[in-house]
Design a protein around this nucleic acid. Structure first.
Lengths: 240, 240
DNA sequence: GACTGCATGTAACGAGTTACATGATTGG
DNA sequence: CCAATCATGTAACTCGTTACATGCAGTC
């Protein structure tokens, strides 16, 4: 449950209201840990019940109020414990790679669009992360600045260096992704060129860029296979 | 809902039983799209209800049976539509980077452990992926082989190249992650060296490697801040 | 008086996890 | 006959998404 730890991390920097947490998630953290208000407010209440944070009610204008949350001793201890543990690695689930695995089912144009979108996506991320790392090193990033305020000077170098390094990791990943997508674009070009070159005597097609699909195997009703082919299929055994 | 598409992708290669799907997810796909049987079987039923796949009941031994699923025309069309669409990018949620952001809260030893674990994790992934890409290029990877069986020869080069490229992306990412973690280890070394060098006249501590925590700000009851500091805190405004 | 921002949610749903349950079949 | 593997699930739960709901505060 890392949403909780991301929230503890913000409250470690400074006490704040739920709304401020929401804004930090929207503006700062969204490229590291995304969360919406509909998740944050209920989680705040759960954390309060669990004794990790405590709220004080502060006035807002003449009639309204807001709740300011801060870490309790237990919340701080929980956060420190989490920071000292090795993070478990979540199981792999990579939608882009899954699709790339089946790029041959798409048209060359669609494959190109996918790689192009990949580049656009990570280039925009790259901009945000570059900006962020600059702010961290300049110590103007809001959360970094708040943290430095309440930590002794001899820790400042480490705080800045670790935070910058975290974002550097995202930058490195983004660059690797962009390079991969560029190689993908070149691959599509090559494959399309060979396909067109090799298609001399082949039957002409109105959409020559699109590989043929299962539609060519049109044997009887849909694609129900004959029973004999099915009964003793133990292919997974051969795996590895 | 990419589980569904991962499953359609396997059934695109060949009709098979739920159990075979489970095995493929365990042995082949687990490093691209992880899923367990408790998720796969119910999803199969949903897909059947939705008309994407159809089952034939095949005998198993003398008394038992099993259900062999294959794509319907609609399932195939859905899969092709998905393959031709640009994948939406899921919101970022990176537990390792989140923890790295707060590495200064941990001990140097714990930070080192984290980076070390990162290297171990991605090196083991790297092995699997290298093996996989080798099998794909050799056309001995089971799903690839099944796919080639039912696709015309002029597509084979593209099928192999795209699948290999997908796994290459995972390999590139793993290498970038390992390089990042190595830089992290060097960073920890440097920071620890400066901390120890700079700690000449400072008060000696029984655990010198561990940065001090909020425990030093021990003003009154826990860490409830004074009301005056809280009422007009509008820090998020400064963001960006 | 209208608009933007502040502030806090709820309800319904879908995706994924953990743990458990059950029985047939095959090979030694 | 015993173990491994084949085969198929269910139940309870957590996490996250989508869409909606409400009202005060400050400003032009």
């Amino acid at each position: 449950m890392s949403l909780r730890h991301a929230m503890l991390g913000l409250l470690y920097a400074s006490p704040m209201s739920g709304y401020e947490l929401v804004r930090y998630f929207q503006r700062l953290l969204e490229t590291i840990w995304f969360a919406q208000s509909s998740q944050i407010y209920p989680e705040l209440r759960k954390m309060e019940e669990a004794g990790l944070i405590a709220a004080t009610v502060a006035p807002r204008g003449q009639h309204a109020t807001k709740r300011i949350y801060s870490l309790t001793e237990e919340g701080l201890a929980t956060f420190e414990r989490w920071a000292n543990e090795v993070a478990p690695y979540p199981p792999e689930r990579d939608p882009v790679r899954l699709k790339a695995l089946y790029a041959h089912v798409a048209s060359f144009a669609a494959a190109r669009d996918q790689f192009q979108a990949h580049i656009v996506h990570y280039q925009s991320r790259l901009q945000v992360w570059h900006e962020r790392v600059k702010q961290i090193r300049a110590r103007t990033a809001p959360i970094t600045a708040l943290t430095l305020e309440r930590r002794p000077p001899e820790e400042h170098a480490a705080i800045v260096a670790f935070k910058a390094h975290a974002v550097d990791g995202l930058i490195a990943r983004a660059k690797a992704e962009i390079a991969w997508a560029r190689r993908g674009l070149r691959l599509v070009d090559e494959l399309e060129a060979t396909r067109l070159a090799g298609a001399d005597g082949a039957a002409p097609d109105t959409t020559p860029a699109r590989p043929r699909t299962h539609a060519d195997r049109r044997d009887g009703r849909g694609n129900r296979p004959s029973a004999s082919r099915l009964v003793d299929r133990r292919r997974p055994r051969a795996v590895q």
